[in-house]
Computed example of a mutant assay.
Amino acid sequence: MQKPLYRQVIRDLENQIRQMKPNEKLPSERQLLVKYSVSRNTIRLALQDLEERGLIYRLHGKGTFVSSNFLSQPNIGGMYSFTEELKKIGQKASTQNQSLSLIVPDEHIATQLNMASTEKAYKLVRLRLANNQPRIFSTSYLPEKLFPGLELSDLNGKPLYDVMKEKYDQISVMAFEDVQAVCLNQEESENLAENVGSPSLKIFRKTINDKNVPIEFTISLARGDKFVYRSRQYNDLF
């Protein structure tokens, strides 16, 4: 199946951007329209995607520019798909699903998932790898009532969100994240093949479906030397 036009434009622009210098100016929207022979909306969708992932930034009245930092490191803040993000920088993603158990979560987890104190959730422990090197260690909680009969075999060779959609018709449309800088303890360092005390990004992620219902709460540890958390802030006075 052919990819949407704006996805093709994104891929081509992304390849160009990675060959450019930080803060170098990109062609204007008008120039991109001529180059790709697509609609203005297609160009804007492509630029919006690149901006949201931190590859470019735009200044009103001045143009669009290549971001200045960390172009070679994935942005954990924009990582909806671990596999797709690594593909963009030429790395191969893989997942080790370590365990899946049915538990009664503690009060904090239950609150995040809008669960009653007696309801159960699946606890999924996974290690995400890039080129067979540990990168993210995560524990996910999924309400049993939304994912009845979930088995570890469902996840063999298939992304979690694909299983959610295909087997349970649960479509994730939004995620809320809090990020904390931490140092790895003994167990965490062993999972991520790092030294005890190494810096890490601890991410608390709650995913919402198309009915505005929480379907997943995940606590992840990402190696601090392999990822960045990038955001953009604008001064509304200018």
Rank of each mutant, 00 (worst) to 15 (best):
P143H: 00
S138D: 14
L33H: 10
P148G: 10
L150P: 00
A193C: 13
R44Y: 09
V38H: 06
K123D: 03
N75H: 08
K3V: 02
F217V: 07
S140E: 04
L59D: 07
K87I: 03
K25Y: 08
V173A: 02
M115G: 05
T207F: 00
E188W: 03
S72E: 13
T64H: 02
G149Y: 07
T83A: 11
P148A: 03
R53N: 10
I219C: 00
Q16V: 13
R7D: 08
K165A: 15
A46G: 05
N15W: 14
N69I: 12
Q133F: 08
Y161R: 10
Q19S: 13
E151H: 10
G149P: 10
V9Q: 04
I136Q: 01
P143Y: 00
K226Q: 03
K88A: 06
P22F: 04
E29L: 10
T118V: 14
L184M: 07
I171G: 08
Q96M: 09
E107W: 01
L160A: 14
F204R: 07
D236E: 15
G54F: 00
T83L: 15
N156E: 14
P4H: 04
P134I: 08
V228L: 07
R18E: 15
Q186S: 06
A110N: 07
P148N: 03
F65E: 04
F238V: 13
S101N: 13
L55C: 07
L221T: 06
R53L: 03
G54L: 05
L55F: 05
V125C: 02
P199K: 12
N185P: 07
L237R: 13
K35Q: 12
N132D: 15
G54M: 02
N114M: 03
K158G: 11
S189W: 04
E177K: 10
N212E: 14
T83R: 12
M1V: 15
K211C: 03
N41T: 10
R223F: 01
Y161S: 07
E187V: 06
E51T: 05
I76N: 12
V34C: 08
P214I: 05
R40K: 15
I10H: 03
N195G: 02
N185L: 06
Q96L: 14
K25L: 03
K165C: 11
F82H: 10
S140R: 00
Y229N: 09
E14I: 11
N114A: 09
L5M: 15
I56H: 07
P22L: 04
K35N: 02
V163R: 04
L237W: 13
S81M: 01
L50D: 03
Q112M: 06
S220N: 05
V179W: 04
R223Y: 02
T207E: 00
L59N: 09
E151S: 09
A121K: 12
T207A: 01
A181D: 05
L33R: 00
K226G: 12
N15I: 12
G149W: 12
Q180K: 08
L47V: 01
L100K: 07
S153H: 14
K145M: 10
M1H: 10
L32R: 09
Y6D: 09
N15D: 14
P214E: 06
F227D: 00
G90D: 08
V213I: 06
Q112C: 08
N69R: 15
R7V: 02
L237A: 12
K87L: 11
H60F: 14
D169Y: 02
K226L: 01
G78Y: 06
I109M: 05
E84S: 04
